[in-house]
Design a protein around this nucleic acid. Sequence first.
DNA 1: GTCTATAGCAGGATAGAC
DNA 2: GTCTATCCTGCTATAGAC
Lengths: 218, 218
Amino acid sequence: MTIRKDNHDLTKERILNEAEALFAQKGFGAVSVREITCAANCNLAAVNYHFRNKGNLYIEVFRVRWVPRAMRLQKHFRRSLAAQGPPSPTTVAQALAEAFLKGPLSDEERQRHFQLMTRELGQPTEAFEIVADEVMRPFFEELASMLRPAMPKGLRSEQVLLNILSIFSMVLYFNFARVAISRITGREYDAAFKNRLVKHIVEFSLKGLGGLEKEGLR
Amino acid sequence: MTIRKDNHDLTKERILNEAEALFAQKGFGAVSVREITCAANCNLAAVNYHFRNKGNLYIEVFRVRWVPRAMRLQKHFRRSLAAQGPPSPTTVAQALAEAFLKGPLSDEERQRHFQLMTRELGQPTEAFEIVADEVMRPFFEELASMLRPAMPKGLRSEQVLLNILSIFSMVLYFNFARVAISRITGREYDAAFKNRLVKHIVEFSLKGLGGLEKEGLR
DNA sequence: GTCTATAGCAGGATAGAC
DNA sequence: GTCTATCCTGCTATAGAC
């Protein structure tokens, strides 16, 4: 079998890769198309040919790169959760923290993923619709339905959502604010520190969720 | 007593105010000087006259607006902590969450404050040196020294720092990602929801810190 | 599908009148 | 201190050759 479409669309792929990295690093407004095409080693006009304009390239980064990666993360979460029997707050927190901090992503990919997400959370654009509708809302629903059976029926689902958001905020931040956290803790983001963070978030989340079963009736 | 310096320096103040709001909302790269001077109802050249250039205006926003506000927050924290007797993990978490979520700041001021901070955490610039050196590091030291007596001597101070960072991540996020959180929870950021969030963060943090006393020796 | 060239505009910054 | 006028650079986007 020979190689099809020599370098057809390879330019498009390279642009998507470099655009994602740069948008994650600096934010949409602080990245120029020139910067992207230069990093992608292609011509300035290629962005307009393949993506119509800069704004649409940003949206496509989410559609074609970000969402599929989020799906991989969810799949990983479901697998490691299923391996632990019926879901409880404990196993859910464990599987969540592990999927998002160790998971199937490379270090760089993970940081990129959460940086893009954090930008949309802080300053939602059109891409936030994709993030919210295709990833966050369905996933939160799924988590809530997993946790609900373990909880007293008086417990409002809002309480569950807030707990989930709290775990997310930690995961997001320990991935998003790496540079700052390194400077403040004085530790590099190496394997040892990453494992330390995973352990910490799992423990903190477990304890945070811990009282959940007893809180339904006030 | 008559009013001194009629509108002297009032322009400078207006520029600082509008610049802070816009930088918080959109980020440094996405705000133009024209936008700022237009909002501040002054001439384009005023920024260069008063602040030399755009980058320096950004730094001055942190020096003149952000740091003093952070100091007000710390003062509030110390006062409400002192009112509860000797500090323990419980009282510290309580006072922290309250200072950062209810505290002395207006809603708008609080969001602005944490948005600026979050931007620097995710993508540190020169201003991060100010944030870290003048505010974060000293404050974290203070918190650690408050918590240390209550903990077994085997406990590494890193553990304490991670706990503090975790609480911060929640506070930061629930202030930073308001728009997104509103859309996902379906709730406006009104007084009721704010109180709900305060209650949740205090409880989650308390539980998260809860096991702290028992973890020193492994 | 990729290139060059360029239109057309918005950005930061400054000079100099008032 | 504040204004207008302007320079110059860098931006996005497009037209048209190859």
